[in-house]
Amino acid sequence: MTMCKAEHDWMLVTVKLAANAELSHAAAKLGVSMENLDPVYGLVTVDIEHHVFACRVDAAALAKALPDQDYSREFKGPFSDSRIDTF
């Protein structure tokens, strides 16, 4: 089940789902299999009122499932997962 990051080029995206969504719902929305979502990162709430969640999806799998990646109706992203450091 556990996949290390080296096997995937994870991409940070947001998806709009139902209120009590699970990772499988994100997979269905994005048209990818569960193996193409980062199970370690999971589903992270971004905007609880509007049911917006973030997840990390394999970039190649998403490109294959949804060729039009230009901020489609299905998801927003990719978003920068910038390095951060202490001041």
């Binding site: 992270v44 709430t45 971004v46 990390r56 920068s80 997962d81 910038s82 951060i84 450091d85």
Partner: peptide
């Protein structure tokens, strides 16, 4: 050496 990723901060905030 200190390093982090914004996605970790996002998850922590959530």
């Amino acid at each position: 050496i200190m390093a982090g990723a914004l996605s970790d901060a996002l998850k922590a905030y959530s």
